[in-house]
Design a protein around this nucleic acid. Structure first.
Lengths: 265, 265
DNA sequence: TTCTACACTCGTACGATGTTCGCGTCAAGA
DNA sequence: TCTTGACGCGAACATCGTACGAGTGTAGAA
């Protein structure tokens, strides 16, 4: 319990109905006062808020219910189970991502458009701590996920990328976004409560460990220890490098001018 | 309980010490008969065996202990906690992967070598059901993980790929392998107990759903539904396509001949 | 050979988790 | 005012990871 109003405390203690007349609870079921009433959207919002402040692992049905001053069972009237709830959370984040994208401009270079989309998407994921973990093993085919896919396909096809490549690249870039953020968050989440400095020191220790390996068996690892570990710090550079690698790879499939020739599948 | 010997059953029931003299348990601590004695390696082996037969989520400390006819508490003498155990499992799989790789041959094309490594790695991951999920958010810097990194770096650097690119590509390909297998397994794991046909039907339904979308708002998704969903079935093709995209991207960074000039970092 | 002390095993318990069941309460209709 | 039906949600269940400490077999000392 933290700072909570009397009304919330009353509701949380199960006083609904026997609350004193000056309590909002006395005004009837729907008038449960400041806290938003239970609903699918409100539950998803609350879940996302908890992700932002306490991390994905802190999201439990009880913890969400607590946000409404009630018990976990109440949530099951609006959500089938935790898995479905996470589907909704993922789609809510996909909405943020798709909303962050500028409208498709066929005159721009498709590589730049795609890069920018991916950058913006990663930015949204980063804003929500480790929500990226929830994306793993989930098909983003909710309504907002589809908006994102549609936008990506528009860029790719207008850019002259063959359909069978374009059909795959959406998933590919999605996975890349998610992996990127998960990996970035790894260091921090592995040592909960660690400060930036702690993380930096941890990475220093790992680099020292790599350097200390027998250089006859691990010559390349020893030689590259600095580049491998330090690179993890300035994530943007790594991320941009991967992005550029992917774009160049895709570009090599680009049909410079659209001939009627089908590449088959 | 499945088919188990009398000795195991006795041990499982907590009869250690009061077992009848003809029971193997009576022969003393070390002689617990057929079942391997508790040890770090044996625990990791058991965990991996459960992953293979029942999936990653079925791996609990109790379930592993059951494999030895004992309780969960006994495992903590060999393993600090479940997280460390999973580190060991991951490294054990990394050992399999690294062992599956042929020795580096500088005369071969580095792209082909790298592709083959990745293919073999994915094959190992696939063999262990959804063990790939355990790789997520884990740095593969165990002894065997390092062997793998070393091998990849050797291929890349000998191939003339600049160091700062090579340092990143190892992680990149690792993520790609893991994401690939997780995505492939997604369909199956989402509907536990589903047969191949069930999965195929599920995917058909999704394709139908995509086709049924309003084509004014989702023109590209509707047009590409077939290519997007069906492509999920023959994973190898998608996987190979991604592999080729990555290789072409990396190749664009390749220095054709090694000049003394350092690319800096 | 007997006794002592140590190291290790593992039953039990604790606090979490997701989910289900059904009691009890509230608000609308008769 | 009384009845009725819907639904909120407290309590319970099965499962999880993990800590603790009593009990056990073994090895070394006497």
């Amino acid at each position: 319990m933290g700072a909570r109003s009397e009304a919330e405390t009353a509701a949380a203690a199960g006083w609904a109905g026997i609350a004193p007349p000056w309590s909002p609870a006395a005004k009837g079921r729907g008038a449960r006062a400041e806290k938003p009433a239970l609903s699918r959207e409100a539950i998803v919002e609350a879940a996302l808020r908890i992700v932002d402040t306490e991390g994905l692992d802190a999201v439990s049905m009880r913890r969400i219910a607590q946000e409404f001053g009630t018990g976990a069972a109440s949530l099951y009237a609006y959500v089938a189970n935790k898995d479905e709830l996470f589907d909704l959370v993922v789609d809510a984040v996909m909405a943020e991502i798709a909303d962050s994208w500028p409208p498709h401009d066929p005159k721009r270079d498709w590589r730049e458009e795609l890069k920018e989309s991916t950058r913006l998407g990663v930015a949204v994921l980063r804003r929500h701590r480790d929500v990226a973990k929830a994306f793993m093993g989930r098909i983003p085919f909710g309504p907002n996920g589809l908006r994102g896919v549609e936008a990506q396909l528009a860029i790719l096809r207008d850019g002259g990328v063959p359909d069978h490549v374009a059909a795959y690249v959406g998933d590919f870039l999605g996975s890349y976004m998610v992996s990127t953020v998960i990996e970035e968050d790894m260091w921090a989440s592995r040592f909960p409560g660690a400060t930036e400095d702690d993380v930096a020191r941890q990475m220093g220790e790992i680099r020292d460990y790599l350097v200390s390996l027998p250089s006859d068996r691990f010559p390349h690892v020893v030689a590259m220890a600095g580049k491998m570990v330090d690179a993890d710090r300035d994530g943007p550079d790594r991320f941009e490098l991967g992005l550029e690698i992917i774009m160049r790879g895709i570009a090599s499939y680009q049909e410079k001018e659209k001939t009627g020739d089908g590449a088959g599948d």
